[in-house]
Design a protein around this nucleic acid. Structure first.
Lengths: 341, 341
DNA sequence: TTGAAAGCGCTAACAC
DNA sequence: GTGTTAGCGCTTTCAA
């Protein structure tokens, strides 16, 4: 394999000149620069990133950590994030390394290993409902002690300040309650995210009831269910709720995410109900699925791809200047009213 | 940051002894080994992978390439693959680098850049229906010329031999036709994968008709539709097909993947049809969704996670010995009969 | 602009 | 087992 020394020799310039020209630190005369570039082509030279990385002490890569026990990208939200991260990754020129599961053992800090061994320059952590079981703040503190540039996305339950990507706009539940109340709804159901239904069903019902009450709305235990987004269970649960006669079923259904909302929508349409006339459907967490559904879903949040892009951009900044204090970067977001309500 | 020289000094051994002990090349007396390990702990030493990689000329990582124009993991099949790849990655100790989109420009070989610059030791390419537009064989040839260890998964349309992960068992369509014919079905519909419906609808119908005819079954143009797995369109299309009266609708529906089959199932159940009594539903491509559906879906293939795990394992072999000729590694697979038929 | 040289941290070869 | 040394390919410094 040709090295940069070979290139310099062939171009008839010094090694340092070749390096500088290839890295844009030296314009050189048109003529020298051209000779170098030609030598690269002739020789088929490609820089050895391993050597560059050692020399510059930069891994040229960021780690992506998803504390998720199940299949790593089992939600459309994560897929959207990834699309954005990738788009920006290309722009900032950093590679993306997936943290393997070995970093998910209890008591071990997600992705810390990658940073400690210099394999990445920083981490993007996508907090999930599952990671909420951990003390995320402790992880953040440990990572900061290591000096690891860190951007946190999505669910975060720690008290420790951390660089985060958030969105503008109010609390999803508040916004949705308000919106539905305005539309004249008085009865509410909920489809929760199945595998990580983080509270007891009774608790889920009473919380919903308490929240709804503030806006003059009510719920019932049998109007609350949980399902996984993609296995049909959510649809089944929604069908059970909606197959009751009018009056015995809620006039609006709030779902934990567009995936579940689409599942509920399919159930509703399958039962011959008109959406939103017979039942309104809304989602608390925006992802790319809601917009293209048979009846576009009213949802809440910011576009996942934008959040991902912003996280990657912010991390690149932090890597360039790690002394910056944690801050929140907000992406425009809030209630997105569509046809389903 | 402490280096291995610091560790050696603190443990009172030579640098090479420390290196050898930490890499398991030297057992050392219990006592020396223990001193080295203790020094590592005292100092908080972590090996600098950047230096090791340069020295050993091994990137210690593999690239994952998915020639997919849309969101990168927009199908449950890919998610399953990734889960398997990750599980095995942990075992073989290789990092996983996602090839960014910049490697997807037309005329550019997917992931080749990563290998040429030494950022990865090999590639796993997940062929998709979208990549079928390219001449995959040309990519494979170019990659081989570079000496890049390569494992190809999923869709492959090239003539060039390549190391592939396949499955045992027959053609999905054949197996499904045979199975459905045995079950007494005479009329067939199909829900195809939407965004990449690779043939004209008329063509899809006539192909299905020709195939089915060999098994004594028939179809009609209005029984064939296409939809994306997750946007509700597939469900809508299935609903249109199934809302016809018995006799005017097919008694079995073949879907391009479990995702679509679940969507069709939801439509069927929504219409009050019994599955499989009123309509049987089957899928040509197994993924993790079918097994947990309301009515488990009859499908065809091998578990995605197993395929992913096998690909990673095979790639690790190829990296260890790149002179091996391309071969196909088959994972057990075939018709998986479940309740939906 | 050039040329020489240092050195990133590690592994591997080799003589002891 | 030990200790010394070379060197992976690159960037960067420094004096010319």
């Amino acid at each position: 394999m040709p090295t940069i020394a070979d290139v310099a020799k062939r171009a008839g310039v010094s090694l340092s000149t070749a390096s500088d020209i290839l890295n844009g630190k030296l314009k050189g005369t048109h003529e020298t620069a051209e000779r170098v570039r030609q030598a690269v082509l002739d020789l088929g030279y490609r820089p050895n990133l391993l050597a560059r990385r050692l020399r510059t002490s930069k891994a040229d890569a960021v780690g992506l950590v998803i504390p998720f026990r199940r299949s790593i990208f089992s939600s459309a939200v994560l897929t959207d994030f990834l699309a954005g991260i990738q788009a920006e990754q290309e722009r900032v020129g950093l590679n993306l390394v997936l943290a393997g599961r070995r970093y998910e053992k209890p008591g071990e800090i997600y992705g810390a290993d990658l940073f400690e061994t210099r394999a990445v320059d920083g981490l993007i952590v996508i907090g999930t409902r599952e990671s909420a079981g951990r003390d995320a703040g402790a992880d953040v503190r440990a990572l900061r002690e290591l000096g690891c540039p860190l951007v946190w996305m999505h669910v975060y339950n720690g008290r420790e300040p951390v660089d985060r990507i958030t969105r503008t706009g109010g609390d999803p539940w508040h916004d949705l309650f308000e919106h539905l109340a305005e539309r004249g709804h008085r009865t509410l159901g909920r489809i929760a995210f199945g595998p990580t239904f983080e509270m007891a069903p009774g608790e889920a019902v009473s919380r919903l009831a308490r929240g709804a009450a503030n806006y003059g709305m009510a719920t019932r235990p049998e109007w609350v269910g949980a399902g996984e987004p993609f296995d049909g269970a959510a649809s089944r649960v929604a069908m059970e709720i909606l197959s009751r006669p009018a009056g015995e079923r809620p006039t609006a259904l709030i779902c934990d995410g567009d995936d579940l909302a689409v599942a509920a929508l399919q159930a509703a349409l399958g039962l011959g109900l008109k959406v939103p006339r017979d039942v309104a459907i809304a989602s608390t967490v925006n992802n790319s699925m809601g917009a293209t559904a048979a009846v576009p879903i009213t949802t809440h949040g910011a576009p996942g791809a934008t959040l991902g892009r912003t996280a990657m951009k912010r991390l690149a900044e932090l890597i360039a200047d790690p002394t910056q204090p944690p801050r929140e970067t907000a992406v425009a977001g809030g209630l997105i009213v569509r046809a389903s309500t």
